[in-house]
Design a protein around this nucleic acid. Structure first.
Lengths: 327, 327
DNA sequence: CTGTTAGCGCCTTCAC
DNA sequence: GTGAAGGCGCTAACAG
């Protein structure tokens, strides 16, 4: 046992205050069981001694640690920070602490993170998890799990449903006279990508548009940049990107080739995380990632108290936000 | 005591394997003390039983928990995610878990977060802390603390020194013929802001430039936006902003007023977090926030093992990155 | 209302 | 190399 500096325990307080250890414990956790005077006296003594309850010991004894874990594929992707922030705030409101994990889009790293967290949290929130479904189900048996943008039956999940925004976008483009459109994909294992792609596909079909799907394995500026040749070669007049970051890359690639937007080519992003930062300001699909974060935490609380209703599935609707990259 | 599902303890494994609890403990923490055969047997049994060491119990017993806390003023500010990511990675490499806290620029909230974390981490990293110096010193007595962009003697700290970048910027502007420049401030309690402002002040004086300091309390798009009238009224021809986010707001305000950049007015940001996302691409000061994050973690490791050398003070140098918002 | 008595699950001397 | 026993700091019945 390594002694920490300034470790004053419940026993020392008890002795100094002339009461039993349990009374000290109660003074902090169940003051209503004690005389206001005793509570006051104990707290006073605790204060002068600099006593601070030992979180770990309490957790061991109660089996509760008031910790949550949140794992995201990439903290630096602008989609996640607002979500993280909202989750933090919601956790904070209930005196929960949150571990943050960055899986770097790597399933095995995500797995390691879960393993490292699971023993010291009450529940885990996995955003855009890249884990195999079976694995998620296994973990869900050990601790409550809430998913964001991943649809696994039996696990509470909140999904940002970009499909109606995408549908809206395709219709909008059809009305404007576009005939052949491109969809530039995101991460292959991503639920969001599948859902967006299929929404585009379906809507394009209904609107009688020709669709070129341009594969891209990740969401990044570079992925968008390098997709430009292909979407141009395919003869499309507009690209719908998996997300804003990718769309930004496309914009840059277009500019490099001297193609003006939206006159020479149109671009649509998704998630609305760049605001009007791009030039021209990007037409995109709204996202509400921070709502998703807050909602996930409250689903977690539900899961933490009632053992029932495991199959919550929240769909957050989205819509087209028209700015200036579409014509 | 609330029983967790699937809680299999060291005792059950011991019994099933026909050994003492201590042997099971050793099999996991000090296998070299046991016969390879016993270790193998114990691990096999543990495996079939689904035993997983209880992190909390171990922490209580050893006094070590392999956890770190990282507190930032605003996760959603693009300056921090790369830093968080780097810190995560560095922690990860040593099997440490990291709690993330978002103080929302509020000293009292930051204080509460520290209090909530301190009992369950080995050390804390405070980025751009808004806490009173005295408070930081107090906490530092309880647990190792590493500061980022906050300069408190006696506490290990890594500082991104934007002052030479700022100096370079001012000289650059002077050479280009600017006579009167503006500095648009950031958060008042921020070390970075003070350091940047004084660098600008000094360099302006040396270069014989007139300086107008425009107060702004926070780093935000809006802060930049609302500063535009004042910097224009002051008769300046260029604004150096506290950071890129603020600079972006200035750019937007200028555009609203029909002023073209850089012909009608020049703008310089700081931190280089927006890349060439703005229009025109922003001239700025490099930052290296991710290096700062990684360095902070390694300073933390140092502090965690050796009790000595408390007064580490790392300065990360920066430089001017000229893009297209300056003339 | 408050004291007594057991643990929570693990690690760690100390013997053998 | 392995077992026995005590303790980390706190909470939770159970008495009184």
């Amino acid at each position: 046992m390594i002694k920490r500096r300034g470790t004053v325990t419940i026993s020392q307080v008890a002795q100094a205050a002339g009461v039993n250890r349990s009374s000290v414990s109660r003074a902090f956790t169940k003051p209503y069981m004690l005389t206001p005077e005793t509570v006051a006296r104990i707290k006073a003594v605790a204060d002068t001694l600099g006593y601070v309850p030992n979180h770990t010991a309490r957790a061991l004894s109660t089996g509760r640690n008031s910790n949550l874990a949140l794992i995201v594929p990439d903290v630096a992707n602008p989609f996640f920070p607002p979500m993280i922030r909202a989750a933090q705030d919601a956790a904070d409101a209930q005196d929960y602490c949150v571990f943050l994990g960055n899986s770097n889009e790597d399933p095995s790293k995500e797995d390691r993170l879960v393993g490292r967290f699971i023993g010291q949290v009450e529940g885990l929130i996995l955003a855009s998890s890249r884990l195999p479904e079976k694995r998620i189900l296994d973990y869900a048996e050990q601790r409550p799990i809430v998913l964001i943008n991943r649809d696994v039956a039996g696990v509470p999940r909140v999904l940002i449903d970009s499909s109606n925004g995408m549908t809206e976008a395709v219709r909008f483009l059809a009305e404007r006279g576009h005939k052949k459109i491109a969809y530039v994909s995101g991460p292959s294992g991503s639920w969001s990508n599948k859902s967006r792609r299929s929404a585009v596909r379906k809507a394009a079909q209904q609107a009688g548009l020709e669709l070129y799907v341009c594969p891209a394995q990740v969401s990044s500026f570079e992925a968008g940049l390098s997709a430009v040749d292909r979407i141009l070669d395919a003869g499309t007049t507009v690209a719908i990107a998996f997300d804003d970051v990718t769309a930004h890359g496309i914009l840059a690639g277009l500019e490099q080739r001297g193609i003006t937007v939206p006159d020479g080519f149109s671009v649509v992003g998704c998630d609305d995380v760049l605001g009007d930062l791009t030039h021209p300001p990007l037409t995109t699909i709204s996202s509400r990632s921070s709502e998703a974060g807050g909602l996930a935490v409250s689903l977690m609380y539900d899961a933490l108290r009632s053992v029932g209703l495991k199959d919550a599935r929240y769909l957050l609707q989205t819509e087209l936000v028209v700015r200036q990259t579409t014509k």
